[in-house]
Amino acid sequence: MKMDFGYMIKILPGFISVLPLTLVVILCSGLFGFLLSVLVTGIRIKRVKIFSPLMELYISFTRSTPILLQMLLVYYGLPVVLSLIGININNWSGTLFAIATLVLHNGAFLSEILRPAYLAVDEGQKEAADSLGFTSFQKLTRIVFPQVLPVALPGLGNALIYLIQDTSILFIIGVVDIMGTANNLISNDFGSRQIDVFLTVALIYWAISYMADKFIKYFERKTARYHLENGLTR
């Protein structure tokens, strides 16, 4: 049992070159997932008829099945479903399926963070905004949103870390990201240096998660002033 640090440094450039792909997947699925979750949260809070129970069903499904299964269902199921309405996506790459899965997953997952954060804003504040003649858009952007942010941020930060770690399964549908590169390296070597390769992968993921964590902490400090508990009054 010995490590080969020279080998680990030698394979590092290969991983760095696929890092942009991983980051694009994380950014796209994080951003669109967040937008979807805002929509889902809106539907649930406003109790839109028919859609609201559907969203409950969607969230319950997403929360009770593993992400790997969701990815396989999207990979094998989405082309079948879309072919029923005449859209052909058989030439989609694995990356697009991966992003689609992560967007759908995060749409439900983040909504479970946003909804309690929205409900945590005192009802009186919304009424006060109404009585001061704020339009509902102003009420949302000036009163509700700044207060939702500090409550939701720790949860959103956790979700970002989970999202980063969830990208480790994308190689199963043929995306050549960090793990995909690792598997290629191992098959080139006839499986003699798995520990070195996966240790490198672990260190790369550790670095990404660490930076994401610092980024979120920075935001948390920035938005702390909106928090009523440590606002101007105390």
Partner: peptide
């Protein structure tokens, strides 16, 4: 916490 379960 920083590395995926699959890698571990």
């Amino acid at each position: 916490r920083g590395t995926p379960l699959l890698v571990q």
